[in-house]
Simulated assay, not measured.
Amino acid sequence: MSATHPGRLSAAEFNAAYPVGTLVFAYPGARPEDAPSATRLVTRTRSAASVLGGHTDVVWVENHSACIALSHVDVVTQAEWAAALTAAAEEVEEKSSRTAADATPGEAYPGELAMLRGLVRTLRTVARYGTDMGEVQQLLAEHASDDADARQGAGS
């Protein structure tokens, strides 16, 4: 990974190098090398970096309610950020997949509920990571097409 770890930069140096909106992986609480179960946020900065309490350089990121120490922030490329979003969406999709034999009564076709749940999970992932509305519209269009194909195949 070519992520840039700015933990040794002061807030002023970080601000000079990275504008608000910079794509980052942020680790609230602990970095993965320090705690294997650490949470990774695929996000972007929403503020300039500042000094908290006169001693800790921090930055605020989207979709997180607290500031994060610069030592827990990695600046990433667009490709790394997009790959992380894709991986998160695929993980959600994998968890929601079901076979047609698992049809729930009241579904228009076998798997309809699973498809809708998968769409909702994917949209939640997309929204959590601040993806733009164009991508949301694309997901909805893909769902509409898949839904129409499934309904036609089920004869409804």
Results as ranks from 00 to 15, higher is better:
residue 47 S to K: 02
residue 47 S to F: 02
residue 47 S to H: 00
residue 47 S to A: 06
residue 48 A to C: 04
residue 48 A to G: 07
residue 49 A to N: 05
residue 49 A to Y: 02
residue 50 S to G: 11
residue 50 S to C: 07
residue 50 S to V: 04
residue 50 S to I: 00
residue 50 S to A: 12
residue 50 S to E: 11
residue 51 V to R: 08
residue 51 V to Q: 03
residue 53 G to F: 00
residue 54 G to V: 00
residue 54 G to Q: 00
residue 54 G to F: 01
residue 54 G to C: 00
residue 54 G to L: 00
residue 55 H to L: 07
residue 55 H to K: 13
residue 55 H to T: 11
residue 56 T to L: 13
residue 57 D to Q: 04
residue 57 D to W: 04
residue 59 V to D: 10
residue 59 V to F: 06
residue 60 W to V: 08
residue 60 W to S: 12
residue 60 W to K: 13
residue 61 V to T: 10
residue 61 V to M: 02
residue 62 E to G: 11
residue 63 N to M: 03
residue 63 N to K: 07
residue 65 S to P: 01
residue 65 S to E: 14
residue 65 S to C: 04
residue 66 A to K: 13
residue 66 A to Q: 14
residue 66 A to C: 07
residue 67 C to Q: 12
residue 68 I to C: 03
residue 69 A to V: 00
residue 69 A to T: 08
residue 70 L to Q: 05
residue 71 S to D: 14
residue 71 S to N: 13
residue 72 H to G: 11
residue 73 V to F: 05
residue 73 V to P: 02
residue 73 V to R: 02
residue 73 V to N: 03
residue 74 D to P: 01
residue 74 D to E: 15
residue 75 V to A: 09
residue 75 V to Q: 03
residue 76 V to T: 03
residue 76 V to N: 07
residue 76 V to L: 04
residue 77 T to I: 02
residue 77 T to K: 08
residue 77 T to S: 15
residue 78 Q to H: 14
residue 78 Q to S: 14
residue 79 A to T: 14
residue 81 W to R: 13
residue 81 W to K: 06
residue 81 W to V: 02
residue 82 A to G: 06
residue 83 A to N: 10
residue 84 A to Q: 06
residue 85 L to R: 13
residue 86 T to F: 15
residue 86 T to C: 14
residue 86 T to Q: 15
residue 86 T to E: 15
residue 87 A to S: 12
residue 87 A to R: 11
residue 87 A to F: 01
residue 87 A to G: 09
residue 88 A to Q: 12
residue 88 A to T: 10
residue 89 A to M: 15
residue 89 A to Y: 01
residue 90 E to Y: 10
residue 91 E to W: 09
residue 92 V to H: 05
residue 92 V to E: 12
residue 92 V to K: 09
residue 94 E to Y: 05
residue 94 E to M: 06
residue 94 E to C: 06
residue 96 S to I: 01
residue 96 S to N: 15
residue 97 S to G: 12
residue 97 S to A: 15
residue 97 S to V: 14
residue 98 R to E: 13
residue 98 R to L: 09
residue 98 R to M: 11
residue 99 T to E: 13
residue 99 T to R: 12
residue 99 T to W: 11
residue 99 T to M: 11
residue 99 T to K: 10
residue 99 T to C: 11
residue 100 A to Q: 07
residue 100 A to H: 05
residue 101 A to P: 01
residue 101 A to C: 07
residue 101 A to I: 01
residue 101 A to W: 06
residue 102 D to K: 07
residue 102 D to T: 04
residue 103 A to F: 05
residue 103 A to D: 09
residue 104 T to Q: 15
residue 105 P to T: 04
residue 105 P to L: 06
residue 105 P to I: 01
residue 106 G to C: 10
residue 106 G to P: 05
residue 107 E to P: 04
residue 107 E to D: 15
residue 107 E to V: 01
residue 108 A to L: 14
residue 109 Y to N: 10
residue 109 Y to E: 08
residue 111 G to S: 10
residue 111 G to E: 03
residue 112 E to A: 14
residue 112 E to M: 10
residue 112 E to Q: 15
residue 114 A to W: 02
residue 114 A to Q: 00
residue 114 A to F: 01
residue 115 M to E: 04
residue 116 L to G: 04
residue 118 G to E: 02
residue 119 L to S: 06
residue 119 L to I: 04
residue 119 L to A: 09
residue 120 V to N: 05
residue 120 V to T: 08
residue 120 V to M: 04
residue 120 V to L: 11
residue 121 R to L: 09
residue 121 R to C: 09
residue 122 T to P: 00
residue 123 L to R: 03
residue 123 L to N: 00
residue 123 L to T: 00
residue 124 R to C: 14
residue 125 T to D: 09
residue 125 T to I: 06
